[in-house]
Amino acid sequence: MNVKMRNAAAILVLAAMACPLGLLRAQAPAVESRSVWDGVYTEDQAKRGEPIYRKECAACHGDMLTGGESAPPLTGGAFLANWNGLTMGDLFDRIRKTMPQSVPGRLTRQQDADILAFVLRVNKFPVGKTELYRQSEMLREIRFEATKPAPKK
């Protein structure tokens, strides 16, 4: 291998290394900027979640999600304020670990995600084309923002 060829090989290696880094950099902002305003659940999923909510949650949190004597509302100012700035992962894990109160963790991850999709719909967050994830680590990439972010300029 002469010098010229060795250089060419080195450049190829560099190019191969640079490429995935470049891709990562291009993709990172898109992941970071996702919030509940970006359509993170589907209408069908919210429809699946509604009967599960009615059966498992409504007795304490109310038919209209407005809360009860010992259960907080899942809609309205206090609910939005208390989760504002956190992530869907935080909210999902809270449900996984503490709900339903009689037997926490009894529901499957899919059921919890479907309930959460229903809660998002009641709170008038926009519907999207993909279902809400059931993996906590992926849900942690979705920010819970109480107000719609200003359009990017």
Partner: peptide, 9 residues
Amino acid sequence: TPDVVRNNE
């Protein structure tokens, strides 16, 4: 004042 009001664009 709630954050959503105080910080609203």
